[in-house]
């Protein structure tokens, strides 16, 4: 009899504060497992900025920095430049990365910083109670787009992976989702590949992970997984936008 699935050492024993069914928990697990499987957990230094994942310094079982909203890629740059042999990652939400922190993520990629970013896109500001984010879909109702987001008022949702894939320093860019076991397995493979790009010193890597927000979407967890598939994936197509071989 073999245990084929158990709690990863990559996460601490702390129970997370995330809402029931929020897929942050799944993504945390994938990152924790990836670090353990690559043997880099004891060498890792993570950065989690403001957002639902602001407490991630209590969850990832490695040295952590809590960064100001939007600034994790800059903090990670400071860390990596001091400790080039450590594995450095950021774990950011869409409000953080695609709104206030756009300059930081673009320039971390532009410089080819040898860090890895996990970008959790749930099309909304979760921690602050469900406001519209740059990734909120057209027609999606939030507390700051009560009639549903419109193009005229606030433009089309921003596709960060496609945007970052145009930057040479971004050697690995992939968008994944964690709404089904199959997608979760693919997401883990992408995360491991992104981490390897850093470990092989090739440059900046980012995995955009489509994620749910049952509480602020106003749905049950299972409904949220379906909503993600029916609404987010069509607008944010899954797949790889860049990997090192192409870049060479």
């Amino acid at each position: 009899m073999a245990v084929i699935f158990e709690r990863t050492k990559g996460l601490t024993e702390v129970e997370t504060h995330y809402c029931p069914g929020c897929t942050h928990g799944i993504i945390h697990r994938l990152v924790g497992e990836a670090m353990v499987e690559l043997g880099i957990l004891d060498n890792a230094i993570g950065v989690a900025p403001v957002g639902c994942s602001v407490f991630a310094y209590e969850y990832f079982n490695c040295d952590m920095h809590e960064a100001a909203h939007g600034r994790a890629p800059a903090v990670a740059t400071g860390i990596k430049r001091v400790h080039p042999d450590n594995f450095v990652f950021t774990y950011q939400g869409d409000g953080d990365l695609a709104s206030i922190g756009t300059a930081e993520i673009v320039h971390a990629a532009h410089r080819g910083e040898k860090i890895s970013t996990i970008f959790v896109n749930n099309a909304i500001y979760g921690m602050t109670g469900g406001q519209m984010a740059p990734t909120t879909l057209i027609g999606q109702k939030t507390t700051t787009s009560p009639q549903g987001r419109t193009v005229e008022h606030s433009g089309m949702p921003i596709r960060m992976s496609e945007l970052l894939a145009t930057i040479d320093g971004a050697k690995f860019v992939e968008r994944v989702a964690v709404n089904t076991p199959g997608n979760i397995r693919k997401a883990k493979r992408a995360i491991i590949e992104a981490f390897k790009v850093q470990l092989e010193g090739k440059g900046f890597g980012i995995v955009e992970v489509l994620s749910t927000c049952p509480t602020n979407w106003g749905m049950t967890a299972p409904e949220s997984m379906k909503w993600l598939a029916d609404n987010m994936i069509p607008y944010y197509p899954l797949g790889n936008f860049r990997r090192p071989e192409e870049a060479e």
């Binding site: 230094i45 600034r71 800059a74 903090v75 400071g78 860390i79 001091v82 300059a103 673009v106």
Partner: peptide
Amino acid sequence: AESEVAAINMVYGAAGSG
């Protein structure tokens, strides 16, 4: 850095790294 905001946050990361 890309801005003074980024620069001071790089200092935060580097200082926190010793």
